[in-house]
Design a protein around this nucleic acid. Structure first.
Lengths: 207, 207
DNA sequence: GAAAGAACTAACCATTTGGTTAAAACAAAT
DNA sequence: ATTTGTTTTAACCAAATGGTTAGTTCTTTC
């Protein structure tokens, strides 16, 4: 064994692979580019990860974990839907501002190879039932408008994720390609998306 | 000149190219596969379109045209925002049910090569100003909640497009991979998305 | 410090891939 | 029927790409 070079090299490879794969996708990524970016020989990629596919899988699985709302971590604090909603939207936007390529990467690769999803399911422990139950509860209590709970979840995801997935399109067409103000817009969405959803589904008691 | 085989072959190539490019993306698409699917020799692709990139550009530009709300076509009928909103959401969903790969294809390729967008702008005549003006008007008239008009537009796009872009993810996780009921869900969204947005932004006069 | 094993590299290999070419098949014009 | 131009094909090519190998260097252990 050696003094930590292993973890270091492995980590260097993973970092580079994350960059290249998320930017170019599985098909567009080149092993040589990953090696260059990691500052090592191409053979090392295979030494550590055997094949492009295995390396990709590793990167993809990791990324996927960030991509589905982890309600469990907030549930200890609260079961109030409004608070929960705010937490989900906020944490999504915070994560994605740091990892702008994540949404397209995930959606794209899942699109090209949907079969991976079954495996990921189990391995990453994605599970929306908790959240859906809470929504059902609020609906039964008459606090929110009647609708398919899954629909509300889809809308939450849509409003949180789409502006990142469509960033190159939207930022150029509507924000004149000014990245700073687009990021400002994204950050404001922590509030505006929350409020938008609240107005759309919570039965107003203000009348 | 010959009796129509030209248009036919060109059209066969384009049809195959649309399929392969939208399914696999520029990087994942193979000229050979396009040729096979078109039932012709690979050399014909270059005979008609010179290069992979040129063929891709043609397909992409065409697809992009379907992807930005063409308000102009409805504006002759109405300038009422609610009616307009319903028309946009409906036409989006109708188009995308027939072309499910479109959203990821566009978003992905735009992401990998954002520079193409400038050119596309002019060539496809995409222009959101009309719609934004109408939104501003309704806001000034006090009919809808105060917000950045672009934000409302982004939300409309998000809610319309995301469920298609995320289809492999969402349909498996929330609809148990039952495509029929997922399509049913998407169709219902012509109404539910419309109503969701109306509740979120139109100042209720029902009290 | 010698042996043993792990980390690393340069050179190489087989296959795939976008693209070309030279010639054949076909159609139209004279 | 011959010429002329267009459409189509089979065979080919050079570059790129994922992967391998044989050997070198570095670490650890005794």
């Amino acid at each position: 064994m050696n003094s930590g070079t292993e973890r270091n090299t492995e980590e260097k490879i993973l970092k580079a692979a994350r960059q290249v794969f998320t930017e170019k996708g599985m098909a567009g990524a080149r092993m040589q580019e990953i090696a260059d970016k990691a500052g090592i020989n191409k053979a090392m990629l295979h030494y550590y990860f055997r094949s492009k596919e295995k390396l990709f899988d590793r990167v993809f699985k990791e990324a996927f974990g960030l991509f589905w709302p982890r309600v469990d971590q907030y549930l200890q604090t609260t079961t109030d839907l409004k608070t929960l909603l705010k937490a989900i939207v906020t944490s999504y936007i915070d994560v994605l501002i740091d990892q702008p390529f994540l949404p397209i990467f995930i959606l794209n690769e899942l699109h090209r190879n949907p079969d991976h999803l079954k495996r990921l399911f189990f391995e990453t422990g994605v599970d929306p039932t908790q959240l859906l139950e809470i929504i059902k509860g609020e609906m039964a209590a008459g606090n929110i408008v009647e609708m398919d709970p899954r629909e509300l979840l889809v809308n939450i995801l849509s409003l949180s994720l789409f502006p990142f997935a469509a960033r190159p399109l939207v930022s150029r067409i509507l924000w004149d390609n000014d990245q700073e103000s687009y990021v400002a817009f994204l950050k404001e969405r922590k509030n505006t998306v929350y409020e938008f959803i609240v107005r759309a589904v919570f039965v107003s008691s203000a009348c």
